[in-house]
Amino acid sequence: MELIVASAIGVLTAAGIYLVLRLRTFPVILGMSLLTYAVNVFLFASGRLTIGAPPILDDAAITYTDPLPQALVLTAIVISFGMTAVVVMIGLGAYLGSDDDHVDDQPESDASEERP
């Protein structure tokens, strides 16, 4: 189980890094989303993995999983939505403003954009 989760984190990170290094905004945003998943799962796993013991208090339960990382990751997930939305908006604004969705500054010659 640990191997599965750790390798999933690794795969998500690798894919995220690769996409973040692309040249256009959209794949970079996707890459950041993948990195967000990886980080969230990584943080979550810092409470160690427990199957079938949710942190819902119950007299019949013998053990519980660590609730704290869950609480932290929960807000992280919601905040990451806000972050994605802001980044998407910035990317979109840049694209609409210049008809160019490169993440890097383009050389001066290419940047001579035609304005309608």
């Binding site: 984190i9 690794g10 795969v11 990170t13 690798a14 990584f42």
Partner: peptide, 8 residues
Amino acid sequence: GLATFALA
């Protein structure tokens, strides 16, 4: 990816 895998 390998680094995060190893760490996790």
